[in-house]
Amino acid sequence: MAAILLAEDEPVLRMLVMDSLEDEGYEIEVACDGEEAFERIQEREFDLIILDYMMPKMTGIEVIERTRELENRKHTKILMLSAKSQQTEQDKVLQAGADDFMSKPFSPLDLIAKVGDMLDG
């Protein structure tokens, strides 16, 4: 089963995403801030990384950038969750190296579908 890293500082949202995806049978690992997320990424390889945009210590963008700098993480799929929905923000995120983007509030079912698509593709 695919391994997913979820980095989200809001506990309630963390629970929401985790519950949704675990029910689908994915193996979920969580991180509560950017630094922690980057540590996890360095430790092992995930099939997908879901990152919150606004996180303490290191923002989602920074995590993406640093991840892409790693030799063997250049092609790891990254999905960004953000409360910022403006087009400019989306562009910024995609430019930094994310593969896809979802804005908050999001539908858990859409998320599940998107995750499935990303892992298949």
Binding site: E10, V12, L16, K104, P105, F106
Partner: peptide
């Protein structure tokens, strides 16, 4: 953030 939780 809370909206996302409520809706989700």
């Amino acid at each position: 953030t809370p909206l996302a939780s409520v809706l989700g």
